[in-house]
């Protein structure tokens, strides 16, 4: 990962949302991306939970960054993330009990989601609270953007609905693609998406390299597995 030189809140947000998108560019947080994306509404709740957890724990870690001893910093970060994730879990039990039954395991797993931990370690523990908040928010939104896109494809092809509403006249033309409902469906959609996004990115970088003076193009990221 390039050194964290972004110091404006907007820059931090934009970079995490797109240029360093956690899923397309860094290939982080894949396990939940595979599991919860067959229905858009469930995905939306999961994304809401992740946005809340990344942005709020980033603020908290940033506020406490001068107090947290170096030796126990990671365990403290996990504690802080866990607090915000449990809040999400309780809120879902109260407001969306049926969806909670389906995705509860993944909500709990946000605690160990590499996106959250990675942003706290790399950015929030060294930057001011508002910047850290924007960085976390950008990561969460970047994750959500991709997840919602994957979920849209899977729900349309797998269930023939959008946000639970049936597609117009689907009896006439739509046929269920069962694979899209099952976890492997996410592999295909996600991999196809990453392929397309990187193809665009590489074309842009190649175009940038041809026009001197060449701006420093970041080397392609090596995907780290979850």
């Amino acid at each position: 990962m390039p050194p964290d030189t972004v110091s404006t809140p907007g820059g931090a947000l934009a970079r995490q949302f797109w240029a360093e998108n956690p899923i397309f560019r860094q290939v982080l947080g894949i396990c939940s991306a595979l599991a919860v994306t067959n229905l858009m509404f469930n995905t939306l709740l999961m994304c809401g939970g992740l946005i809340w957890a990344t942005s709020m724990s980033a603020v908290t870690v940033s506020l406490m960054r001068r107090l947290i001893p170096q030796r126990v910093r990671m365990i403290t970060e996990v504690l802080i993330i866990a607090v915000y994730v449990i809040m999400v879990d309780i809120a879902m039990r109260v407001f969306f009990p049926e969806i909670h039954r389906v995705i509860a395991a993944y909500v709990g797993l946000i605690v160990t989601n590499c996106i959250v931990m990675g942003r706290l370690e790399a950015y929030a523990s060294k930057n001011t609270p508002f910047n850290a908040f924007c960085d976390g928010l950008g990561s969460g939104l970047g994750y959500s953007l991709i997840l919602m896109a994957v979920a849209t494809v899977r729900e349309v092809l797998g269930f023939g609905t959008i946000m639970g509403y049936p597609l117009p006249a689907r009896e006439l033309w739509w046929h269920q693609w069962t694979l899209m409902v099952m976890p492997p469906g996410a592999f295909f959609v996600l991999a196809g998406g990453v392929w397309i996004a990187r193809w665009f990115a590489m074309r842009r970088e190649a175009a940038a390299a041809q026009s001197p003076p060449a701006p420093q193009a970041a080397p392609p990221q090596q995907g780290g597995a979850e």
Binding site: L67, I68, P69, Q70, R71, V72, T76, L79, I80, V83
Partner: peptide, 19 residues
């Protein structure tokens, strides 16, 4: 001094309790 072992212990216990 966040390196002081006593501080580390106090911080860990206190943050656990608060959260």
């Amino acid at each position: 001094n966040t390196k002081n072992p006593l501080y580390v212990v106090v911080f860990s216990v206190a943050s656990s309790i608060v959260f």
